[in-house]
Design a protein around this nucleic acid. Structure first.
Lengths: 215, 215
DNA sequence: ATCATCTTGTGAATTTGAAAACAAGTTCAG
DNA sequence: CTGAACTTGTTTTCAAATTCACAAGATGAT
């Protein structure tokens, strides 16, 4: 957030992985970790980890390692992770409802404040209010920047609408393809594509062995 | 599948994106596409696209472009995408059931043949049979290689169990961290991490503009 | 049939990312 | 307090991926 020295995209992609591992370590009561330990844990070279961390400042101590709590705090502050992102969800079908009932949002990135659906009266058993899409402008929470998309029709139209209404980050579970203006950030989540990639990878390594995998 | 000339990992990651876009084009009745058009559509440089395609053979014609149907067919055949992957799903909570009811599996990668749960008798309204984990060895479909993980407890134990039972590809929706042997391929799907990454990216580009985004 | 106009596929160059190597600072035992 | 043993952060080296640039082949209008 302060003086970003051009953090590489590849590094940005790994931060959530580190953060998750660090939270796990913290939950196990571990307060100190060395890059080499963490490396084994997340299957990323220790040298890569140290470099990734170095973009955020001098976080470790020679001969000691890193303090887990400090790391988590720096990640949160420096990367603008303020824990209270107001997120909205569009489309309350099976998947949408499953995400709404997912209880691990708090104190991680923020929370889903409300949801929108074409037929909100048919949606029952959710812990947050569900509004009609017609009420969007009226009901959109103050400061809301991110939307989770769980619809299967009219994707492009919906995306355009969201962008026009000030959303700049979209996490999409929609399987269909869509395009956005340059300044909008999209994260696609697609089981089918993941499985395809998995199959492609499997078939391509069967030819020449040797791939390191982890989660 | 035939003679893979070391397809780069980055390329492997883009194949599903192309495939999805191509299917969309096909559904719109478009039979011919040029790398430049496709580039604008998926926000990947045309030259990158041409190189990516070149790993699978000479698929295009100079002065003409690519035939959409041919491309889709080659992708499927060459990459071992045989449309009938027998997939299993572990954990039938909200999310698991949502995935089971997702109706766009057929003719894309294969299908979810059955599911497993600790308490299968409590799971209702699914279109595929749900078995107890105790019956795993007995019920696992012949030729099944891929499992979708939708559980929130005992992740590591479950993963170890699956690996011991011949699964080598895992698509995990579990938020918790786990490790696998080297030859196992894992695709993590995690809404929270995606949102984190999105926030990180947003905050880092606000400093220096200019990022191309798409879906 | 011919030619101007396209578009692919690929060597070469450039940019980007990862790994190795090491200097400098910290810890902890005695 | 002293020094051996560690571990970070960064410089340098190496590898991977992307982009450039262009030759070669195809098209379609005339």
């Amino acid at each position: 957030m302060e003086n970003f020295k051009q953090v590489p995209k590849a590094t940005l992609h790994r931060y959530p992985i580190y953060l998750k591992a660090l939270r796990k370590l913290k939950s196990e009561g571990i307060e100190r970790v060395m890059s080499r330990e963490l490396a084994e844990y997340v299957a990323i070279e220790s040298t890569t980890i140290r470099r990734d961390f170095s973009f955020l400042g001098n976080l470790g101590k020679q001969g000691y390692g890193y303090n887990v709590n400090d790391l988590i705090r720096v990640f949160s502050e420096q990367l603008g992770m303020n824990f209270d992102e107001k997120i909205i969800l569009i489309g309350c079908g099976n998947l949408g409802k499953a995400l709404l009932n997912y209880n691990q949002w708090n104190h991680v990135v923020g929370e889903i404040v409300c949801a929108f659906d074409l037929a909100p009266e048919k949606v029952t058993g959710t812990s947050v209010p569900v509004y009609s899409m017609d009420e969007f402008a009226l009901r959109k929470p103050e400061g809301c920047r991110i939307a989770i998309l769980c619809i299967s029709k009219d994707i492009q139209k919906t995306v355009d609408f969201l962008v026009d209404n000030g959303i700049f980050g979209i996490v999409s579970f929609a399987s269909e393809h869509f395009t956005v203006p340059e300044h909008i950030i999209v994260k696609q989540i697609d089981v089918v594509s993941s499985i395809q990639e998995l199959v492609f990878e499997a078939n391509s390594v069967s030819e020449n062995e040797g791939v390191k995998s982890n989660a």
